[in-house]
Simulated scan of single mutants.
Amino acid sequence: MTQYIIYFNQQWVGDHSEEWFRGRGPLAKAVVQEMKDAGVYVFAGGLDEDIDQAFNADATSGTLKISDGPFARTEEFLGGLSIVDVADDEAAKIWAGKVAEACGWPQDVRRIG
């Protein structure tokens, strides 16, 4: 079995009504439950949308520094992720498709080394 991360950037979500988002919650929870029932679930969760609440740890100078904010300011930032443990790329694609359909926005998939 191989672990895969299925993730999206917050900017991919798009503008939707509160009602639209409320309708997506049960769909996403159902996919997570399906992952658990299938025995492939490792983790799933959305991240706080307020990027200014992020902080980073950097020890590249030889001295650990903890700073407010993300390490690098970028136009896009991670919005949420799921990790599944499945047999192969094809199985990961199936789960990514289920997550994308439930959430209503694109998902990227990468193997975890």
Rank of each mutant, 00 (worst) to 15 (best):
S61K: 09
D52K: 10
Q11S: 14
E101M: 05
G80N: 08
I51W: 05
E34N: 13
G97L: 05
G69Q: 04
Y7W: 15
N9D: 15
A87W: 05
A87I: 02
I66R: 00
T60W: 02
D52I: 09
D68G: 09
A30F: 07
K36W: 11
M35W: 06
Q3C: 11
Q3A: 15
G14S: 07
I94E: 09
D58F: 04
K29R: 15
S82V: 00
T63F: 05
E19Y: 14
I5H: 04
F71A: 07
A100M: 13
A59I: 11
G80W: 09
D85V: 01
S67R: 06
W95I: 02
V13N: 08
D68F: 07
E34Q: 13
G69P: 10
D15V: 14
D48E: 13
A72L: 12
V109D: 06
S17G: 12
S61F: 01
Q53R: 15
L64Q: 03
A102M: 00
D37M: 03
A87F: 05
V31F: 05
L64M: 10
R73D: 14
Q53I: 06
L78V: 04
S17K: 07
D15P: 15
G69I: 00
G104Q: 01
R22M: 15
I5P: 09
D85A: 08
A44F: 11
L78P: 00
G23I: 08
I112A: 09
V13F: 09
A92H: 02
W105F: 06
G113A: 10
D52V: 13
G113M: 09
A30P: 09
A92W: 01
D89V: 11
V31A: 02
W95M: 01
K29H: 14
G14R: 12
E49P: 14
F77K: 02
G104V: 00
D108L: 08
D48L: 11
R73K: 08
Y41P: 05
E90N: 12
G79P: 10
A54F: 03
A30L: 10
A87S: 06
S82G: 10
L47S: 06
T63P: 00
I112Y: 03
C103L: 11
I5K: 07
M1K: 14
F21Y: 15
S67I: 04
P70R: 00
Y4N: 08
P26G: 13
V86G: 00
A96C: 14
A100E: 11
N9R: 15
G97R: 03
D89S: 13
V84Y: 03
F8C: 09
G62S: 06
R111C: 04
K36N: 13
